[in-house]
Design a protein around this nucleic acid. Structure first.
Length: 278
DNA sequence: TACCAGGGCCTTT
DNA sequence: AAAGGCCATGGT
């Protein structure tokens, strides 16, 4: 299905029909990608850096061996999944159909659970530029240097040893104490990611909510974006608008197994069309 | 039950 | 330039 090759600048070329890189990276699921002046996106996942851009149905990937694409990034971008099967499953619903016209190229990334947990603790009651700033300062303060001012995401053990005062440079406000509680509970095994992975959606939410500062919205985000549970269904203000306007009788049961990706389509659609603001 | 802290970015004025 | 809106959770 994927056709690969090399372009003139010695980068990898990946065919990606139906995929939308920009929407995927800017739909609020990740916070460590930045669009460069040349239009490409520079991002960090784990200890790896990647620069990538999309032109029509092709991805141009820089700074990445072919083996790294196959072994790491193809999974990260969820290219092993066939998203047309989600779209077919949701096509019975006219609102989802409309949303998929605008946002159907979004993939759910396969991000690291710990990084995702921290990111969505930070995201609460917050806006995306500030979330990215706090995460960037967290990595610069405690992560391992990679290249050119880029840092890895610090592990829970490193964070667990610190105090709220130590995190003052992050300017995370009231969220700093939540980060420390998360780090302590993950580091000491109170919250076990393997158990979350094996658990049902409801059980997984309860396990994550042992952390002070993790409520239903953050927990569902972590289950969807960090554990790839495609039926997780985070409801924020945008989704509340969508649900009240288009689904007064509730979200259709037949769409629930795909609620996570449906939520992304609808969320992006609501924001693009500035639902309720006109 | 209702309300508000907390902080910074965004939009509107 | 200034003011007001926004936001997820926990605490009162």
């Amino acid at each position: 299905m994927e056709h690969r090759g090399l372009c003139q600048e010695n980068c990898l070329v990946i065919q990606c029909p139906g995929f939308a890189l920009k929407d995927t990276l800017e739909c609020g699921q990740c916070f460590r990608w930045d669009q460069q002046e040349d239009g490409s996106f520079l991002g960090i996942a784990g200890n790896r850096l990647l620069r990538i851009r999309q032109q029509e149905d092709a991805l141009y990937v820089y700074g990445c061996e072919s083996a790294d694409w196959e072994g790491v990034w193809a999974d990260y971008f969820d290219f092993r999944e066939d998203y047309t099967r989600f779209q077919k499953a949701l096509s019975f619903d006219p609102v989802c159909c409309e949303a998929m016209k605008l946002a159907g190229g979004i993939h759910i990334l396969r991000q690291d659970p710990w990084e995702t947990l921290c990111s969505f603790i930070i995201s609460q009651n917050n806006n995306i530029p500030r979330i990215k700033g706090i995460i960037s300062r967290l990595c610069a303060l405690l992560g391992d240097p990679l290249t050119e001012g880029c840092y890895s995401f610090p592990g829970p053990e490193r964070l667990a040893a610190l105090s709220v005062e130590d995190l003052a440079p992050l300017r995370a406000g009231f969220r700093a104490k939540y980060l420390l509680d998360a780090a302590q509970k993950v580091a000491d095994g109170t919250v076990d990611f393997d158990a979350v992975r094996a658990a049902s959606l409801e059980e997984g939410e309860q396990l994550l909510r042992q952390i002070h500062g993790v409520g239903p919205k953050v927990a569902q985000c972590v289950l969807l974006f960090g554990f790839h549970k495609m039926d997780a269904f985070p409801v924020d203000v945008w989704m509340k608008k969508v649900l009240s306007q288009f689904y007064p009788d509730g979200f259709p049961a037949a769409a629930k197994p795909y609620g996570g990706i449906a939520q992304q389509y609808l969320f992006h659609y609501a924001r693009l069309t500035k639902l309720g603001q006109s």
